[in-house]
């Protein structure tokens, strides 16, 4: 795995341009924020209030998704009993309620043409061999998506780290990212608010702010998910790495989800291409579009 543990990464930051819109692919576990991005009003990191962390996490979580996006990516699944690669095209549109996501499998043969569509709370699978669409119940949300370490829930639903959690700053220090740029590294501890409908007892979030700009560029670095609040060891860990230009910005192009309870198992997503602000119509996310 191409992890670079102690490096920092930071997005391509474009001083003076319009407010930046960071975007998160649907393929990111858990979390996507409100349908419309709010401008990030915060000034460069100088203070550490809770009100400030929430938009940062929201930005980081949406870094590869944005308001609407389309991406071509490779997914590699490494399991103790098999390994497998998929080529995927993912489209997402969060500009209006309900949020929509379509994952279409481009290869290999056994999966080509399979598609998973989520519109609001409704998730459907299309199997080209039987030409049938199955609409899924909530019971299957926690199942793994196509044998990967991402669950259907991770891929499709919008749970929100910026809304259901409270924040605590653990550490804040200067560092350099993968590309050698000066960044500020923040380690946040997220605890679910009372009665919040969340799956995790505790989340450890590392993000970085690119220095030297009026609007800070926020990029996620690593997210560790703990099953229970008192757990010492995370159950799974999502790492963002391989900074490279995507649609005119420097963004992490590789996501690695490690199942820490199963040593050696992980699922890795590499973005080949990403395009933001695609003008999708509702037809692009209709059941007819699946076929």
């Amino acid at each position: 795995m191409n992890l670079t543990p102690n490096s920092l990464c930071s997005s391509g930051h474009r001083p003076g341009r319009r407010r930046f819109v960071l975007q998160l692919m649907p393929l990111l576990p858990a979390l996507a924020a409100a349908p419309l991005l709010r401008p990030l009003a915060a000034r460069a990191a100088t203070s550490g209030s809770e009100a400030q962390f929430s938009p940062w996490i929201q930005e980081a979580e949406r870094v590869l998704r944005g308001r609407s996006s389309a991406a071509v990516m490779k997914m590699h699944i490494q399991r103790s009993d098999y390994q497998r690669g998929y080529d995927l095209m993912v489209m997402s549109d969060d500009r209006a309620e309900p949020g929509k996501v379509l994952i279409r499998m481009l290869g290999p043969a056994l999966w080509r043409g399979n598609a998973t569509l989520k519109v609001g709370d409704r998730i459907s699978f299309y199997d080209p061999r039987s030409r049938r669409i199955t609409v899924m119940g909530n019971s299957m949300l926690a199942d793994n998506w196509m044998g990967s370490h991402f669950s259907n829930d991770d891929l499709m639903r919008e749970t929100d780290l910026s809304r259901h959690y409270s924040y605590e700053l653990l550490q804040r220090n200067k560092d350099r990212d993968e590309l050698g740029r000066r960044v500020e590294l923040l380690q946040l501890l997220l605890r679910p608010k009372p009665a919040a409908p969340v799956a995790w007892g505790k989340v450890h979030y590392q993000l970085q702010l690119l220095e030297g700009s009026a609007d800070p560029v926020v990029l996620p670095l690593q997210v560790d998910y703990f099953r229970r609040p008192e757990d010492e060891k995370a159950q799974r860990s999502l790492r963002y790495s391989q900074l490279k230009p995507l649609d005119g910005r420097v963004l992490p192009s590789r996501l690695t989800m490690q199942a820490l309870d199963k040593p050696g198992e992980f699922t890795q997503i590499d973005y080949a291409r990403l395009k933001f602000d695609s003008d999708f119509s509702d037809d692009d996310f209709s059941e007819r579009a699946l076929r």
Binding site: F125, D127, R129, R132, M136, G147
Partner: peptide, 16 residues
């Protein structure tokens, strides 16, 4: 009947 089942290798398939 239509059945959506996931195999042990994580392959989802639909059959009648």
């Amino acid at each position: 009947l239509g059945l959506l089942v996931e195999s042990a290798e994580g392959v989802q398939s639909h059959l009648e």
